[in-house]
Amino acid sequence: MRTLYEVMEFLLPFSFMSSMFMKNALLGVLLVSPLLALLGTMTVNNRMSFFADALGHSALTGIALGVLLGLGNPLVSMVVFSVFLAVAVLLVKRAGTASTDTIIGVFSSSAVALGVVILSRSGGFNKYAVYLIGDLLSIRPADLLMLLVVVAVVAGLWVLVFNRLLLVSLHPSLARSRGVDVKFYEYLFGILLAVVVAVSIQWVGILIISSLLVLPAAAARNVAGNMRQYHLWAMGIALFSGVAGLFLSYFLGTASGATIVLVAAACYFATFGANRIRR
């Protein structure tokens, strides 16, 4: 860890980088933003941004359950509840009785309401407000290590299963005709997304997590001509927005997550404009 800090001080010899929390926050951004962008590419392909939003909102209930159970760190209950919600939505969606966005809306609003009710029981909701906007600056080395593990697992899975995820997203029957277990991959992606959202929410914030998933991928779609370019652009834009947003938030004294989202949104409009001019 110390070597890493020294390298960072050497590469970024700015006074604001001398504080420990900025170094940790920068490392956090370097892990979280490409992680979300990677999953974001498929989230946008599958038109699942509303699903991701619902997963983010469900974190409130996950926290509430953690508090009820007396867990010191609500991370476990968040992950469990997030996965539960993802599986529930996919199950009901498979039954095919109502349209997907209605189902997600029902689950999402129930989860938010339940979370708020539990957390506000004794009028103490304010201490959980940090989860709404996230707090990158409080990230610690142990959290970074956990994020690193998550990034490694997701990247590994992305190498192993991406082709089949893509085929399923292009056409489920076509994928099935080529021997792909469509149901398995639908659940795999849903659960992966749920875990990543739950793990990231503490640093990014409930209100903006889906923006960080969707914006880099949406911006990349304006300029990419194939899957490789799509991923390169999405991760590049996410890294740029993450680092630029973090530095900006330091100077402006604003919430880091929201500032990052604003930079990513600017990237979206820039690529949208570039695309319009080119065509």
Partner: peptide
């Protein structure tokens, strides 16, 4: 991308 996703395991994004 479509062909490679169907015919090979090498991830098309990589």
């Amino acid at each position: 991308d479509l062909f490679a996703a169907a015919l090979s395991n090498r991830p098309v994004w990589l």
